[in-house]
């Protein structure tokens, strides 16, 4: 029972229940408006019929012509609406847009190496680790998880255009690059 609709500027007034947790960053206005003014068709919100926001995904299409792809920038679901497959629905939206609208070869995302719940979710959705990015979350410093806490997995899922699955590889966890190489 969720309304799937475009993410709108005024959702910034109502996303507190989603954003008031340590894993979801609340950025400056420019961050959200940059996505809305460039890739509004890659931004989607899930809303309860009672009006409360449940979750959202923000993404973009980027890359050079030979690796043009969709990118998941932010995906977050409020704790009270977890276990309703909302993440799956929102990811599905973004993949469809990447595939149908932008003709992307793949969709990629970054996830903290320690975030095993999220990694499991993405693997369940068909994503695999393409490479490990060293110190991607370096600004937070080393937490109890050591290097895993500041390193990210760059995970990818091939889209229909990548018929031969050239955008993914089986041994991605062993391929280590520095943060400079990916930004």
């Amino acid at each position: 029972m969720s309304i799937i609709r475009p993410f709108r500027a005024d959702d910034l007034f109502r996303f507190n229940n989603i954003n008031l947790n340590i894993w979801t960053e609340t950025y400056g206005l420019g961050f959200y408006f940059n996505y809305l003014s460039r890739w509004p068709d890659m931004c989607c919100a899930a809303q309860h019929p009672n009006g409360r926001l449940m979750g959202y995904v923000l993404g973009k299409a980027e890359g050079s012509p030979h690796d043009f792809h969709g990118h998941v920038t932010a995906l977050s679901v409020a704790p009270e609406y977890r276990r309703l497959s909302l993440a799956r629905i929102l990811m599905n939206f973004l993949e469809t847009a990447s595939d149908d609208v932008y003709g992307g070869l793949f969709v990629d995302l970054y996830v903290r190496c320690t975030n095993s719940i999220a990694i499991d979710l993405y693997e369940g959705l068909g994503y695999s680790v393409y490479r490990r990015v060293r110190e991607y979350y370096g600004s937070l410093g080393l937490g109890p998880g050591g290097k895993d806490e500041e390193d990210a997995f760059d995970m990818r899922k091939p889209m229909s255009k990548d018929m031969y699955r050239r955008s993914v590889r089986p041994n991605g966890r062993d391929v280590i690059v520095s943060a400079h190489d990916v930004s």
Partner: peptide, 14 residues
């Protein structure tokens, strides 16, 4: 900031 993104939306035809 916001007006800059209104301008940007015109530029990107969104």
């Amino acid at each position: 900031e916001t007006s800059e993104f209104i301008v940007k939306s015109f530029n990107m035809e969104k």
